[in-house]
Amino acid sequence: MPHITYRDPNGRTHVVEVAVGLTVMEGARDNDIPGILADCGGACACSTCHVYVDPAWVERLPPQGEMEADMLEFACEPDPVRSRLTCQLRVTADMDGLVVTIPAEQA
């Protein structure tokens, strides 16, 4: 299973295995990693699963869809390059080693 590294808002780092086919949001939820709220359950409707992707990974992830791009405008302090919504990032084998940082605030 791919390993994903989440840096939580308290400064702790969590390295967890996330099954291919789940989303990066679901990986955080299933491992009780704090800071990703995902109020809407993964419907791209709340922007509370926002993270900053490690710069080395920005280009390696599938591009944002229209809905994700629109919802990111409503996130807290979005970064034009590094911000993503984790409910829209479906884990694939080549995401092994992905590093994301969870912002201090989601709303």
Partner: peptide, 22 residues
């Protein structure tokens, strides 16, 4: 905690007011 329920729909027309409702 079935956060993936269908009560708010899904896709591009997912309930826009769900944040307020919640």
């Amino acid at each position: 905690d079935p956060a993936d329920h269908l009560a708010f729909g899904y896709g591009i027309h997912t309930c826009a007011g769900q944040g307020l409702a919640r």
